[in-house]
Nucleic acid binder design. Sequence first.
DNA 1: GACCAGGCGTCTT
DNA 2: AAGACGCATGGT
Length: 280
Amino acid sequence: MEWQWQEGLLTVELQGPFDLAQTLTCGQCFRWRAEGEGFSGVVQGRAVTARQAGGRLTLSGLAQQQIPWFLHYFALDEDYAALQRQMGRSAPLAACIAAAPGIRVLHQEYFEVLLTFILSQNNNIPRIAAIVDRLCTAFGRPLPGGGFAFPLPEALAGRSEAELGCLRAGWRAAYLLDAAEKVAGGALAQAALDPLPTPQARALLQTIRGVGPKVADCVLLYGLGRAEACPMDVWMKRAMARLFPDGLPPCAAPCAGIAQQYIFCAERTRPPQPTAARGR
DNA sequence: GACCAGGCGTCTT
DNA sequence: AAGACGCATGGT
């Protein structure tokens, strides 16, 4: 894709479907906030602003050498037009894509995804975001332009549950500590997971306390770039069963997690179904 | 007050 | 293997 770097501002000419707002508000990330015409967030230890105007995305706050990383972060190096053509061979899936065709599955930072989705269990999105904010404020490096980086594993490893009390994360605090310790210790460092086939990586992730099948697949999909990983909670299983009584179609299997993201968003915004007329 | 929220660990059958 | 239950917190 074409891009231009000028005075700290990255301008990308978008190819294929892309919608910044859909991408940042579809429940896959927790650190972006709508601000004015665009969004602001902290990624890769940089306070970044993003703004879309039609077929053009502009980013500020990043360093020049981070350009390729950020293009990959927004999945701008992937052919989503082709991906959607492929998935759209299934009619119900095509309908889900049509509900939010501009979604892209971000390539987020592994440790951040691990912790934020541990926090997501039996929780709601606004509160997850609030806890993540407090986590960064309390344990993240302060950034020049204000705000805080996401904490390093080492900044949390060895802390006590009492020290995490300020997060008001409840019983999830103990899970954060176990995750941080295993990542900092190397056993669950990204370098240990990247070489593994997805099933083995999934099993290793689940050795962290508080990481079950759902959180593990969120980490695989959002944090480790495994597009085939498909987070399934009970709500999602019900939606899948209704939309795909014969199972997810083969055209979606290699990118089941990406398909799942369209389904999640389409279902979440689905208008209440008219119930059968009831006498009264 | 009851119920719910992108679950998981533990304890029962 | 599958189901019930509690978990801490905050919002309807």
